[in-house]
């Protein structure tokens, strides 16, 4: 996906691969992603279904649909308070997962909306990471806690909107980049090498000719993950605006 809009060029690549532990257990890839481009902007979503829940793959897929539909409704209103988007996302997700119970469809929700009004809206519920690079600075939406102490925060189990990490950032027409990843990626990258990893992704994404090349490139990166840390499903969206 490479779109020119006046001065801007958007480059996006994305892929998801099944974890080795899921392969061994005969489970499907329980991660999901969604990338949609509209006149008002671009919506990016990644979601990680909780491995222990019977319909978490369906829950994760429904997260992408729910965010997409919710943003289209939310965008129709003048007031762009990101907090007002959340009840819509949750309600539509509940409709999407029906007839299954919330507890059986637990999944994380990480979204980014690149709006043509010059703002980027970020939201995260549960594990994973969203990095945003702007003006040579790398920002992380949510700092990770211990993996084993926060396993239950996800769609279907969250207790309030305080569980969400939210951010609205003005980017105007400046170039910027984002990398969104499920925890199968974010928790297995060496901590002090994360920035270098992201910069290399941007560089390689920009060198690709088209969407197919970019997606294939991301797929290759995720597929060739060090096997000792490839147990979990891995999903990544790399976005760059130049």
């Amino acid at each position: 996906m490479r779109e020119k809009d006046e001065m801007r060029v958007e480059e996006i690549g994305y892929a998801s691969v099944r974890g080795l532990l899921h392969e061994k257990s005969g489970l499907p890839n329980q991660d999901a992603y969604s990338v949609k481009r509209y006149k008002f902007g671009t919506i990016l979503v990644v979601s990680d279904g909780l491995g222990s829940k019977p319909f978490s793959a369906h829950g994760a897929k429904s997260v992408g649909t729910a965010v997409d539909k919710a943003v289209q409704i939310w965008n129709g209103y003048k007031e762009k308070d990101i907090r007002l988007l959340l009840p819509l996302v949750v309600s539509i997700w509940n409709l999407e997962i029906f007839p299954y119970a919330q507890k059986d469809c637990c999944a994380t929700c990480l979204f980014a909306i690149v709006s043509n009004d010059g703002y980027v809206y970020l939201g995260q519920l549960g594990d994973g990471s969203i990095y945003l690079s702007l003006d040579h600075e790398l920002q992380l939406l949510k700092e990770k806690e211990d993996d084993f102490t926060n396993v239950t925060v996800c769609m279907g189990s969250f207790t309030g909107y305080a569980d969400w990490s939210l951010k609205k950032i003005f980017v105007g027409h400046r170039p910027f980049g984002m990398v969104m990843m499920t925890d199968g990626v974010s928790e297995t990258i060496i901590e002090d090498r994360r920035e270098a990893f992201i910069q290399l992704l941007y560089k390689r994404i920009s060198a690709c000719e088209n969407l197919s090349e970019r997606n294939n490139f991301i797929y290759q990166v995720l597929s060739k993950w060090n096997p000792v840390n490839a147990g979990d499903d891995r999903t990544l969206i790399c976005y760059r605006r130049r």
């Binding site: 297995t188 090498r193 994360r194 990893f197 060739k224 000792v228």
Partner: peptide
């Protein structure tokens, strides 16, 4: 893609 250029970013040890 140069396959090896991403090798150094992933933790070499399995999770404990």
């Amino acid at each position: 893609m140069e396959n090896k250029e991403f090798d150094g970013f992933v933790m070499p040890e399995a999770r404990k």
